[in-house]
Design a protein around this nucleic acid. Structure first.
Length: 528
DNA sequence: AAGGCCTATAAC
DNA sequence: TTCGGTTATAGGCCTT
């Protein structure tokens, strides 16, 4: 059963497909009852606008179809990248009405919540149109899976944003104090940071703001040293007494400004980090965050992520996900056989002269377009030993260089070349621009497919988790579940099973394995 | 004062 | 001949 749903200021409208629409005063109550009785697939305009209010009322749904995310996938597939993707825009296109631009900006979703819809959107008609367009894709079964996974991802993102990841404010403060000195008063640098800044100044013989690349370059110049930038790896080559304290400063300043006290004040409440995840926020299908920086948490801060009393964190990541995905996509039997092993690179080592490191460089260069060091030599070996995998990424690169589109395994489509690129590519620097886009499309097919595998895994795992276990973190190829201690085994088994099912759902019968070993820990820092 | 671009670095 | 992809965030610095 499928039910379209629209929220408004006074409740909402439910529209079981093929039946009359009916208004309800208490939307959350109605959704709860229907979810309990019939478990429909909910069709709604935008999960980010609709679902948080339901979660707030403790109502969760198993399945949905997000019209905005689906429209976005379809427009890209159809070569119409950039057209407005909201359900309202899709509706307007169907009816021949003026198409409203998408809301943009940090508060777009919240703003629309409090504004009445300017026009009534025929959700069922938009949905039917999308199903028709999905059926017209080259492989409708795959695209349907993509739509389902993307929509499920939106549910998970909203739920994780609500539940939050366990975060001990006291341990975070303790960690910051150890590294930086006590929390400073507003406008002051923490003591250890100031001491390092003073050392840098002393080494130059004049006060320099270590946060200013311009001042640093000038100061080095006065000391008779020319630096092309003030990046850490450049400074490491420079012999000057300021370099030591400067590198230390940079590392700590990063922690302070990006994940320091101000950050915690804004994003941590009641022992939970609650960032805002954006499913489908990256062209490759990876998630983004629009606040909270949850996908860039420095590793040292994992010490602050601690399970509640009597609970555990079950942490699992898919090791070597991208080369495994490539092996499955390309149907390269030799690579797929190696991808049946726990350590793919070790299994490949023999083909690359015995060194595991060489195998790794070869694979990464193939997927990222790397050319430095021994890459060229190793890629030649790869071409010979794993011709299908090699050809797969080469074809993707060639398509990008030619200005064509590439797609992931399930049909996510890369953006078309920009007008700027088209101009560049026919000019004197055209070769460079073409190669740049080739690297992008080469990586896109792998990264996007890895992302949809991870999305599928998460959708499956969400359905397998026993209450009250909760998904609390997801970072590209890694998931974290927070659960009572006595559920650890069940949750770990769920993770492995979800990984196996995700692999089979995407790739069918294949020797490739994408193992996910879960570990249960009290503290995230102990997971690796 | 606000906004856009640049540089730098965190994650995968 | 150099020259690996996707991001978020913050501070400096320049323009308006």
């Amino acid at each position: 059963m499928r039910i379209a749903l629209a929220a408004d200021a006074h409740g909402g409208t439910l529209w079981p497909l093929g039946e009359e629409a009916r208004r309800v005063g208490d939307l959350a109550r109605a959704v709860h009852d229907l979810e309990r009785d019939v478990r429909p697939r909910w069709i709604w305009a935008d999960t980010r606008a609709v679902y948080p209010a339901l979660i707030e009322r403790d109502v969760r749904v198993a399945r949905c179809h997000d019209l905005t995310l689906t429209e976005s996938l379809l427009l890209a597939y159809e070569g119409r990248y950039g057209e407005p993707r909201s359900a309202q825009a899709a509706h307007a296109r169907l009816r021949g009405l003026p198409v409203p631009a998408d809301e943009t900006g940090p508060h777009a979703v919240q703003d629309t919540l409090f504004e009445p819809e300017p026009v009534e959107i025929d959700l069922a008609a938009v949905y039917a149109d999308q199903l028709r367009r999905v059926a017209a894709t080259e492989d409708p079964a795959r695209f349907r899976l993509l739509v389902a996974a993307e929509s499920a991802g939106a549910l998970v993102a909203a739920e994780m944003g609500h539940d939050g990841m366990p975060w001990r404010e006291d341990l975070h403060d303790q960690l910051l104090s150890e590294l930086l000195g006590p929390k400073p008063v507003r406008g002051m640098r923490p003591a250890k940071l100031q001491a390092l800044a003073d050392q840098v100044g002393a080494a130059f013989g004049t006060a320099v703001n270590p946060d200013s690349p311009q001042q640093l370059v000038k100061a080095f110049k006065m000391a008779g040293l020319t630096v092309t930038s003030t990046r850490s790896h450049v400074l490491k080559q420079v012999d000057h007494p300021a370099v030591g304290p400067l590198l230390a400063y940079k590392e700590l300043a990063r922690l302070y400004s990006s994940h320091g006290w101000a950050w915690a004040q804004q994003w941590v409440r009641g022992h939970r980090l609650r960032p805002e995840y954006v499913a489908g926020g990256v062209v490759s299908g990876r998630w983004a965050t629009s606040g909270g920086g949850a996908l860039q948490i420095p590793k040292v801060m994992r010490r602050a992520v601690v399970a509640d009393e009597g609970w555990r964190l079950v942490v699992a990541d898919a090791a070597q996900l991208e080369p495994r995905v490539l092996a499955a996509m390309a149907g390269d039997r030799g690579l797929a056989r190696a991808a049946g092993e726990i350590d793919l690179y070790a299994a490949l080592a023999q083909a690359f002269g015995g060194a595991r490191e060489n195998a790794k460089i070869a694979m990464l260069s193939a997927m990222y377009g790397g050319t430095s060091g021994d890459a060229a030599k190793l890629l030649a070996v790869m071409r010979q030993r794993f011709p299908l995998a090699y050809a797969f990424v080469e074809d993707a690169a060639k398509a990008g260089e030619d200005g064509r589109l590439v797609r992931s395994w399930l049909g996510r489509t890369c953006p078309p070349p920009s007008a700027h690129w088209l101009k560049l590519v026919s000019g004197p620097e055209g070769g460079r621009a073409a190669r740049d886009r080739g690297r992008f499309t080469r990586n896109f097919v792998v990264q996007a497919t890895a992302a949809e595998w991870a999305l599928t895994l998460m959708a499956l795992l969400r359905g397998l988790l026993p209450a009250p276990a909760r998904l609390v973190f997801f970072q590209h190829d890694e998931v974290m579940v927070h659960c009572p201690e006595d559920l650890v085994n069940e949750v770990s088994a769920g993770v492995s099973r979800a990984a196996e099912e995700a692999t089979r759902l995407l790739f069918g019968e294949t020797p490739v394995r994408i193992p996910m070993e879960a570990v249960a820990v009290a503290c995230y820092a102990d997971a690796k």
